[in-house]
């Protein structure tokens, strides 16, 4: 049942490729800027950058439709941008300002957008997996064909509650795609040192959940696998597991010196497998756009990111009264958004 998938060679349209390029580049530039602002002391606490993993979320978002939900862990900035959340609101949350998605009260790891069906941003490793199954449960309960993309890492894949969620999702045929973003390191512990059997995509077999290993540095491969998974879920056939092999270029968080791997290992990935470079090459080789066209996109994104950074710096800190708000709801906030 578990398979390794190989993407068919480039069948994507020009529009699609340019779109992936733009989306992935936006995440990368955003993260680079976030890293910079962190260094300047404008962002505090934990900050987990997504650089290197962009193809995972961009490829999967390309398979979603209106109404689908997504939920992830604390390495969440990329997911928010990919589902259409405003970079300004995300960056201002990183700086802990009033204009942030959570009014500055959530920070890097805890952001939400009911409008974009983005359910966080969760700081406890593995905890978002049953939550994702619960969102999928609501879809089934409400009788719609929406799917919940539930992202977690290779480290979280060892948490017990993940398997509790697998069991219930399979038992009740919940429309949930379990996306394991395997970047090969659970903080500083390599998969080899933490995981008894390396093929995580086979871990659903005991529950009857099909799984697939996907090249996460290839956005087209991710999209192809995502389409298959989504179709399975939408049809009512229950959950699906995608183990997406990816790589983060930066440390686990900003404070991680990444001594557990060699500089050469990182360099080799960047040079040989970079997901953005790969799409760039497809675009140029296929004559879909010129170097100048891509430069124009680069410039446009740079502006968006600079604007978001400016906004995040200028937005005031939350009013002191905000300390006491949003502890209890008077009315269910979801009702307003619906």
């Amino acid at each position: 049942m578990a398979t390794r998938s190989r993407a068919k060679k480039n069948s994507a349209s020009m529009e699609e490729l340019l779109n992936y390029y733009r989306e992935m580049l936006q995440i990368r530039r955003f993260e680079e800027k976030a890293g910079q602002l962190y260094g300047m002391g404008l962002i505090g606490g934990f900050c987990h950058l997504y650089i290197g993993q962009e193809a995972v979320v961009v490829g999967l978002e390309a398979t979603s439709k209106e109404g689908d939900q997504r939920i992830t862990t604390y390495r969440d900035h990329g997911h928010m941008l990919a589902c259409g959340m405003d970079p300004k609101g995300v960056m201002a949350e990183l700086t802990g300002r009033e204009g942030g998605y959570s009014k500055g009260k959530g920070g890097s790891m805890h952001m939400f957008s009911k409008e974009k069906e983005f359910y966080g941003g969760h700081g406890i490793v593995g905890a978002n997996v049953p939550l994702g199954a619960g969102l999928a449960f609501a879809n089934k309960y409400n009788g719609n064909d929406n799917v919940c993309y539930t992202y977690f890492g290779d480290g979280a894949a060892n948490q017990g509650q993940v398997y509790e969620a697998f069991n219930m999702a399979a038992l009740w045929k919940l429309p949930v795609i379990f996306v394991i973003e395997n970047n090969q390191y659970a903080m500083g512990t390599s998969q080899k040192r933490s995981t008894s059997t390396p093929a995580i995509y086979t871990r659903g077999e005991a529950f009857g959940i099909p799984g697939e290993e996907v090249d996460g540095m290839d956005v087209l491969a991710v999209k192809a696998a995502g389409e298959k998974a989504v179709a399975h879920c939408r049809k009512g056939d229950g959950p699906y597991i995608l183990e997406v092999k990816t790589y983060r270029y930066r440390g686990h968080s900003m404070s991680d010196p990444a001594k557990y791997r060699t500089r050469e290992e990182v360099q080799k990935m960047r040079e040989e497998r970079d997901p953005i470079e790969a799409v760039r090459k497809l675009i140029l080789d296929g004559n879909y756009a010129s170097e100048d066209d891509l430069k124009a996109i680069d410039k446009e994104i740079k502006e968006i990111i600079n604007d978001s950074a400016d906004f995040a710096k200028e937005s005031p800190e939350p009013a002191l009264e905000e300390l006491w708000t949003d502890v209890y709801a008077e009315e269910l906030p979801q009702d307003d958004a619906a």
């Binding site: 939900q69 939920i71 359910y119 905890a127 997996v129 049953p130 939550l131 994702g132 199954a133 619960g134 969102l135 999928a136 449960f137 609501a138 879809n139 309960y141 409400n142 017990g160 509650q161 509790e164 969620a165 069991n167 219930m168 038992l171 269910l332 979801q334 009702d335 619906a338």
Partner: peptide, 25 residues
């Protein structure tokens, strides 16, 4: 549909319930 027996997995089904509540149930 509305009265649901769960497996003996408190951590999992409590989380699943919370997810369903996020979705407005």
């Amino acid at each position: 549909r509305r009265v649901i027996d769960t497996p003996i997995t408190e951590h999992g089904f409590a989380g699943l319930g919370v997810g369903a509540a996020f979705a407005g149930l």
